[in-house]
Design a binder for these strands. Structure first.
Lengths: 236, 236
DNA sequence: ATATACAACTCGTATATACATGTTAGTTAT
DNA sequence: ATAACTAACATGTATATACGAGTTGTATAT
């Protein structure tokens, strides 16, 4: 029965599911710690451990003397590092990619700095048009250290998510992204791809992905269609 | 000695201070849980409680079998609801405002919905040009329910931060903002203010501020100069 | 009817303990 | 010298318990 998953994780999973099913609703109270103890036949500290995790990610909040409640927002949702493919699928669109370029280069010095490698080290340069239902939405340019991902060019990134590939074949999970955003006019090829004309307004984003050890694993510089794409952010 | 502050909070405060003083440095290990037990003459569960809080806000991270370390980033910093004035000051610029409009209106229906008020209720409409060292950076349009902030028009918002005013005179603190961002071309008056010409690229943001009870307190719709302003985001 | 007191229930803080699991460095056997 | 083992130490999970503090509804006294 206990499939080797810690009890407290089973409880968080149960509570999350129950919220998703709509059984525990926004603003409503959930069973008390004592009731959950009985339900899972465990100690109160273990139940609190589970609830703490959900309070910390914003799913629940507590009021002393009254109980524990479902938050009005699930903050977590908006703040995950999703990747384009996943994001589009959650919105109900069919994501696809067209590879513009996938080659080994010497990095420019600012990229080498951000990735904490030497200018003499090689990087993979992957440039893709990201599409939703075949409509061009963004151009993503990603730079990855060759040392860290040897043989990456063997994999088809036309069909598959880059992040899935890194996870599956290199056991690399993105833990954190530090991203900056401004707005500029795209011209030339970029504008032609996204707008089918020679100028268009885009959001320009640039920044670094880090793994759990805070080693930089990718530098991305991307353009998102100014009106077809919206960034959705919750700030606490 | 124990000034009625819970022990675990004393420990988190101590660790934070020690990091700020530079004694525990980025990426370096901090004393083990056992050592902190001895140092504060308390139990391991209490020390873990303290460390958990710092792990959850991103100040520390743990590696099983090795120890607890100071994170390379302090995530919290980037995710605060700062307000324009505060943000500009931290960047070393002198913030100022020019009020374009400050009046009582009937809200449009989408704004009434977002603020959870009736279309027949009044709202304050505050429109300001936000400047850094007298250079126009953004146009902020804010809508606030009159019922909640009676007499708001008495206060000078030319000199003072709106958020400071709400805090000081109405005891209202912003707990959370849900914001959306895209990129568009500003034209007409807006472009003239921000670019001194008839067109310019801007980031368009719109969204709602909530208080700790998740009551909407303001709806904002703003334009930020596309290149003079950059959004800086850390996603975990 | 109203006010007070109390009991029951909630989450908050704290301790002492146990064993599991992962990491590291030193020791021992080859 | 190298490999395998082991002890020491780190965090991870879990229990049983105790009392503090805030909230709510009920019962009692006025």
């Amino acid at each position: 029965m206990p499939e080797n998953v810690p009890i407290y994780q089973q409880i968080t999973a149960y509570i999350k599911e129950t919220i998703e099913k709509g059984i525990y609703q926004k603003g409503n109270i959930i069973p008390s710690e004592q009731e959950l103890c009985n339900q899972f036949d465990t100690s109160r500290m273990t139940v609190r451990r589970a609830i703490n995790d959900l309070v910390n990610d914003g799913t629940l909040y507590r009021i002393q003397g009254r109980g524990t409640f479902v938050s009005h927002f699930v903050f977590r949702k908006y703040l995950e590092v999703l990747g384009f493919s996943y994001h589009m699928r959650t919105l109900g669109f069919q994501p696809s990619s067209k590879i513009l370029s996938f080659e080994i280069q010497k990095p420019e010095k600012n990229i080498a700095e951000e990735l904490k490698i030497l200018p003499s080290d090689n990087v993979f340069y992957l440039s893709r048009v990201r599409m939703a239902d075949l409509e061009p939405i963004a151009i993503e340019n990603v730079f990855l250290p060759e040392k860290r991902f040897p043989g990456l060019d063997k994999y088809s990134l036309e069909e598959n998510s880059l992040y899935d590939t890194l996870r599956t074949y290199y056991k690399t999970e993105i833990f954190l992204r530090h991203e900056k955003i401004n707005a500029i006019v795209a011209e030339g090829t970029d504008a032609n791809i996204l707008f089918s004309k020679n100028k268009g307004v885009v959001m320009h984003t640039w920044g670094v992905d880090f793994d759990t050890n805070m080693n930089p694993i990718a530098y991305a510089d991307s353009l998102y269609h100014g009106t077809k794409y919206t960034f959705d952010i919750v700030i606490k």
